[in-house]
Nucleic acid binder design. Structure first.
Lengths: 199, 199
DNA sequence: GCAAAAATGGACCCGCAAGTCCAGTTTTGT
DNA sequence: ACAAAACTGGACTTGCGGGTCCATTTTTGC
């Protein structure tokens, strides 16, 4: 009978507590003791739910955060079928990172996993793939409506857009400014809109 | 008489050794002992040249790497005054990161500095600012030749392009693929070229 | 060439935080 | 109700790796 209801709740509490700790204090404050204190748990509990220790916990945090990144963009991200939709999605993305501030748990965790590096990369890669997929779907949707040139490679444009977003977020993390993220989003959208004019 | 010739050489050796270690084994292999071994130095030397210890050393590595990032793009980056120049610059960037592989010392170091975090951010911020400045200069140069629409905000376009690059590199680090970097560069350049047609 | 300052070697210290253990309690299925 | 399994508490161990110290050698400037 692996994982009782209470156990599940505790596990959840640990993961969210660790994530919250990162957001507030940065990745270096995340010591097992800190997590214990914040989540009112003991060391045995930590190792009970995460037998492989800190790395496993951090990986769980990464998964948790990755899921949030996508879901925070819904429902707009899943329905990029009109220019207003694109615009409000754009605003949502900018807003999300404005609120999050410069402490990105996902990014923080990524640089911290050592043995589990492959696992961490997999989580990040999957997130990126999913994100890119949604963007490409949106582009194709617009293409089918004649709002974006059909000669354009949807997948490649999605890659470029995704890169712009990632870079924008990264720059936000390091400088605290959101200008780059906004510029990247705006320019990408403008590029997509402009494609139809000269086709 | 602070810093004799030999001392300077040793210091240099330490920084480069640490950077090389990161490239080969990742950031977690960078222990003071590892640096000592690789650079044939003793602990006293490390603390002689970097009294504040590891953080100071890592910061020096960051500075060293940051300088390399820009200079590796020269002379092309400094003379973006024709489309062929842009193209060869683009190729140089992609090539640089292809050669570097997925272990970026600068990125790695960034996530590792704790007390010196402000210092690290400053280094990164300055690098970004300089990079963006060069790009903006290139865009303005093309504008003056009528190859890019003058209505376009050079600084903002440079921001977007820079974001694309950063994101592309980041994705390269996490997935190993350079496609995103290439897509971001190509699309940005295409956007700039296209601006003149509809002006 | 000779003090002073810089450079070097390497033994030693030490704290922190991850990880272990086991004893005790609560929950669960039947 | 009663075993088995899940859950919890917290004391204890441990090792890694950063940082300290001092003795010795080399270089520098005059």
């Amino acid at each position: 009978m692996p994982l009782t209801r209470k156990g599940n709740a505790t596990r959840q509490r640990i993961v969210e507590g660790a994530a919250a700790e990162i957001r507030r204090q940065g990745i270096f404050s995340v010591t097992l003791d800190a997590v214990m204190q914040r989540t009112a748990t003991s060391k045995s509990q930590l190792f009970h739910y995460f037998p492989d220790g800190k790395d496993e916990l951090l990986l769980a945090v990464a998964r948790h955060e990755a899921a949030g990144v996508i879901s925070d963009q819904q429902p707009e991200l899943g329905a990029l079928n009109s220019w207003p939709a694109w615009q409000s999605w754009r605003d949502k993305v900018v807003d999300r990172y404005r609120k999050q501030g410069p402490n990105c748990p996902l990014n923080a965790v990524m640089g911290q996993l050592k043995p589990t590096t492959e696992g961490a990369r997999a989580v990040a890669a999957e997130l990126l793939a999913q994100w890119q997929g949604e963007l490409a779907a949106g582009i194709r949707s617009m293409q089918s409506q004649g709002e974006i040139a059909t000669g354009l490679d949807a997948e490649r444009s999605a890659q470029a857009l995704l890169a712009g977003i990632q870079g924008g977020v990264l720059i936000h993390i390091t400088t605290g400014s959101l200008e780059h993220l906004e510029a990247a989003l705006d320019q990408a959208i403008e590029f997509l809109r402009g494609s139809v004019a000269k086709a």
